[in-house]
Amino acid sequence: MDIDLMMRVYPFFLDAAWVTIQLSLLTALLGLTCGTLGAAARLSRLAVLRFLGAAYVSLFRGTPALIQLFILYFGGPQIGIQLDAFEAGVIGLGINAGAYMTETIRGAIISIDKGQREAARTLGLSQWQATYKVILPQAARLMVRPLGVNMNMLIKATALVAAISVVELTYTAQRYIGSTYKPFEMFLLAGLLYMIIIYVTGRAVAWLDRKVQIT
């Protein structure tokens, strides 16, 4: 193993890791937004919204994220959407993650016993009051863990933007493999940083999950 080489290039990997972290956070934010809207649509009283929500989930979960990214980044200009690679990465991955999060959020909401809504309604709360005072606070607690799983997948999915040349961890590893012919060392550097990011995120999710549980 070429330790010298690793010591020489690791600062570039750190910079790249920072890009991966930024990508992950922004993607998660957009994903949560899309997921919330998607879940609201899927649980709507209006059949049109339910259909749109279901179509969103099916189409974005049914096709590769890489292709979605390519359509947005390479195909976007054809329909007047001009994005730089980083923007396209965040938007493409965010919308994709949102489709998965839609199902997570919806799943948590529908798993709340229907007696809870009934009890709230019998007290005179409106549908919406029952939702935000009784259903959502309980569903939110159930969501933390599965959203953490979505987050874990999302961090790994940020590697896809290497294919549109965003200089993040995987792209950096690929470039240095090409120039140094040391695939193992470069993998080790990038892999270690990914695992640190994922580990820290996992701890944060576990902390949050403990924090929101009712004692």
């Binding site: 016993d113 007696g115 809870q116 009934e118 009890a119 709230a120 309604r121 019998t122 007290l123 005179g124 709360l125 409106s126 009784v134 309980q138 009712i214």
Partner: peptide, 18 residues
């Protein structure tokens, strides 16, 4: 909603808000 404020209900499975 207004009517239900006047009608209290108690359920078999309590349905307390946990």
């Amino acid at each position: 909603n207004a009517m239900r404020q006047d009608i209290g209900m108690v359920f078999q499975h309590f349905n307390l808000f946990p």
